[in-house]
Design a protein around this nucleic acid. Structure first.
Lengths: 216, 216
DNA sequence: GTCTATATTCTGATAGAC
DNA sequence: GTCTATCAGAATATAGAC
């Protein structure tokens, strides 16, 4: 029976370092919400601690300082972001590729709105903590995808639109439903964005982007 | 000669209250940049004072407190915003209306990027200081424009796309070039967004939105 | 690992001389 | 109207008992 006392009821059997992981995760979640809402400077350790329901000093036990905590939150967010990036696969037909990508991006806005907002806040502030990330994989990824679009244009599979602007339109439109939720709710006079709202939005975006780019 | 000493070289002849106006304007400009970059909580009176090159106490002479200053900045921003709202006029042809509106919105992103970012930050934070504004004119404006779109759909002038999503796509895409500038610069590997960048982006957006909505 | 108490710096705001 | 000096409270961060 003794070892049962050390098991986590919620998260399965005991492993060395599990308490550490759990506490870290709890703080990270609270921090993500706080940073997404108030930005790096506007967020306070006090509020994060209250939200995570741990004493303020515990945060400093798990993370070196405020910047370290923010870095950890940002890293989590960027990992999620990368996963969506790679959803823009190079299948044969542009229609399939873009449809799937728009659906994936919109799904991300629905399931990870806080991550989307955190990223947006960081960008609007001039991306002071993202330079390393943006310089690496991101540039390469973008260049590669742009050349795929250009080959489609060359093959007459889509209109001669600048590929970068198409990507920006997709990013902007899909992220909008996470980042500008209050504006959308009031405009459409609905209390919350349902799963159906997102599906409907994705359908409209797909229709406009595909037809607008001359993809059949 | 004496009265020349009281004239402002930059802003024309002396008027009662001119010093007051000038100082207020100076502080407001610095505050807008600071709030747009760090949000309400993240901005500090100290930094605003330094940026405006006035002693911190002077800000409290012109504005009741931090919230009052933020309110004044936000009011300026919303007035600019309203002007663009009304650019979506109800001419006869959808193509003209949407073209002009996209151009106007994109021009706003180019000439008032800080205002755009301030508004975006406020939205991402849940629009805590905008509820009054969003409840009034905004709802009415949106409803009216939606009915125009619906009449176009009924007349077969455009595809049966949900009007709200079209508007959101236009807002999202145009604001993106102000709010997400760092991402765009790094992706396109250019040092700054030129006037030509904005024109090119507007052209792509117009092409995709108009064709995508079936507007000839 | 957890938490109370506290050191230290910073922030918003004010008083009062000029 | 302007500015220096300063307050009270809040912020990050640490010390040290348990």
């Amino acid at each position: 029976m003794a070892h049962l006392m050390t098991e986590s009821i919620l998260r399965g059997p005991y492993k060395p370092g599990r308490i550490r992981e759990q506490s870290r995760e709890l703080i990270l979640q609270a921090a993500e919400a706080e940073f997404a809402c108030h930005g790096f400077r506007g967020a306070t350790m006090q509020r994060i601690a209250e939200s995570a329901q741990v004493p303020k000093a515990n945060i400093h036990y798990y993370f070196s300082n405020k910047l370290g905590l923010y870095g950890a939150v940002l890293e989590n967010t960027l990992n999620l972001w990368d996963a969506i990036f790679n959803e823009l696969a190079s299948h044969d037909e542009p229609a399939d590729v873009l449809s799937c990508y728009i659906d994936a991006k919109m799904d991300f806005s629905r399931t990870h709105p806080t991550a989307s907002r955190l990223f947006a806040k960081e960008m609007i502030s001039g991306a002071p903590h993202l330079s390393a990330y943006l310089q690496q994989d991101y540039r390469l990824w973008f260049k590669q995808r742009m050349s795929i679009f250009e080959s489609w244009v060359a093959q007459g599979k889509m209109d001669d639109v600048e590929p970068a602007h198409v990507i920006f339109m997709i990013w902007a439109s899909t992220q909008y439903y996470a980042d500008f939720e209050p504006q959308i709710l009031i405009a459409t006079q609905t209390p919350t964005l349902t799963e159906q709202s997102f599906t409907s939005a994705a359908d409209s975006i797909k229709h406009i982007i595909l037809k607008g780019c001359g993809i059949c």
